[in-house]
Design a protein around this nucleic acid. Sequence first.
DNA 1: AACACAGATTACATCGTTGTAAAACGCGGT
DNA 2: ACCGCGTTTTACAACGATGTAATCTGTGTT
Lengths: 339, 339
Amino acid sequence: MRATVKDVAARAGVSPKTVSNVVNGLVPVSEGTRARVEAALAELDYVPNLSARGLRNGRTGVIALALPDLATPYSAELAHHVVEVAHGQGWNVQIEETGKDPHREFELVSRARANLVDGLILNPVALDESAIRVGGNLPPMVLLGEVSQQRVDQVVVDNIAAARDMTLALAGGGRRRIAVLGANGTSRSATAEVRTRGYRDALARLGIPADPALEIACDEWTPGGSAAALRAFLAGHELPEALFCFTDSLAIGALSVLAKAGHRVPGDILVAGFDDVADGQYAVPALTTIGVDKRAMAQNAVRLLTERMAERRKGPVQVELPYRLVIRASTGQLHGPVA
Amino acid sequence: MRATVKDVAARAGVSPKTVSNVVNGLVPVSEGTRARVEAALAELDYVPNLSARGLRNGRTGVIALALPDLATPYSAELAHHVVEVAHGQGWNVQIEETGKDPHREFELVSRARANLVDGLILNPVALDESAIRVGGNLPPMVLLGEVSQQRVDQVVVDNIAAARDMTLALAGGGRRRIAVLGANGTSRSATAEVRTRGYRDALARLGIPADPALEIACDEWTPGGSAAALRAFLAGHELPEALFCFTDSLAIGALSVLAKAGHRVPGDILVAGFDDVADGQYAVPALTTIGVDKRAMAQNAVRLLTERMAERRKGPVQVELPYRLVIRASTGQLHGPVA
DNA sequence: AACACAGATTACATCGTTGTAAAACGCGGT
DNA sequence: ACCGCGTTTTACAACGATGTAATCTGTGTT
């Protein structure tokens, strides 16, 4: 059986509360008793019961991180940073996968309220309104990503502007047939939506008529889904001059299909991604993409969340992180967005 | 303030215990009271306090998953499956990163008992002896991977045989200069060790003298680390006939370097990986690799762990999963291991 | 009408920790 | 010796849920 404060107290010849005081270090304890208690703690290999502690003071020391799909490199890198940052501050992280099912996001918010977690970092997919619609008291939470939502704290990146800049860059040198890969088909991903909007913005600015056929839908944001979607597209359409994939994973699938079909990148077609995941840098050819400092994202998310949990703040806060165009071989030489 | 069983009980005109009975459904409750209680539950939007429940019955419903580095595609895919399987059975998953620091593994095993966690799935790096040496009572735990360890439950894959088979396959057609990438340098990764052993076994079987120069060390198992290590190697050595990378991530870095250096794969050199991660399939060229059913791995790990937690079993159990050679374009046509 | 009996409901205690408030202690000053 | 004051330590209760065992129903039997 595990030792409790009571056992330690008995062994050290003090009261349970004194043991608690030694463990927590908030209340002063005299030198002598502290030594005795610490010896007892070590001898009995005492480990505090966090359930009891959580019950007593209402906080568990655990935060939840909810992502669509942990197997996606982007999510994985983000999770890695969040876990690292949170651990550094003494928090434990519980992972939840929302699997693109908006209903699960909703469910999570109540899970958070079950006090198993003190707060929630949510990378939403389609929760334009789902999770947030919850009535009165939301748990402390931080939204991650592109969705703009007024009622909660969030760390955002201007996806519209980023997609616009990328499209403009791809259009350099007079290219006009620019396709995107990852547009919304049957599902409604908020990410796909904003990136599509940025793409259209750019076309409008360039005076290029939007061609719906060039917005290649792909609901499954994996290399496999991407490959299938692109193969289907190529079977019925001429090769575009540039292909802007809404994530690096999609781009990696696309590169694979293009290579097998004998199209040269960037000779025959430019390819760009979004997210700047590690594998993109080592793709063949290396992938041009939109980069965001994921470590900073994690740091800000954890900071906002801890501040919120400490109730150090009233109104919701929004932190906007910069993005940057990362030009690599898959587009050849490109110049920044056209003015 | 959040509603408790007490509040619900008052509203429904019953005792707290009856509310608990309705919520848990284990003790029969009459039709009428059940309806009344359920109405009260809904009206007050009752959510059970899991800390209290955990304190009372000693279990939290959370298991920990400890991995070296979540950002690695292999770890990410594995985590994805574990989370999905565990969720399917009503468990929550807490992620821990051991960051290749064996001391953290050790710490986890002891702290597991504190961390609001009922059990632990551990993907060890170098814990040949570290974590397991712990004195008396280990928490319920399952080891994942290649390390063979007698005292705990584990899900293993015969990495020595897999590496041997891959090396033999690469040696088909009379190739003799076969290098590996990912050997142990300063760190001592158990994974690197067993895969190196399999490689050497194969060479011995083929009568090829082992050449230490062809065991390219690389302590950082990322595409970046791999690229750096391979570049350094190529600066001083002739191109080998085949390159067996100890993970797909390493192979992806290698492919990138080879492509930039103008070496054709598989024309000038065969390249193979290990793990069969999603991106490997879409690498250019697609990566030959060792595949393991990660979903099965997760299922077995969770099953062993839940059985262990339920104390349905006494002695430790070992489940061995099969692997398979996945031949893709990066090695051209290969034939199974030479007899 | 009295009684046994199964099923539903309840009071109570408990899990381990810690905040509160009260008690014990030590020590210098008169 | 006694008082007062600041510092340590203690007893007690409470956090919320639930197992245990006792109590209360209502039905069917003699």
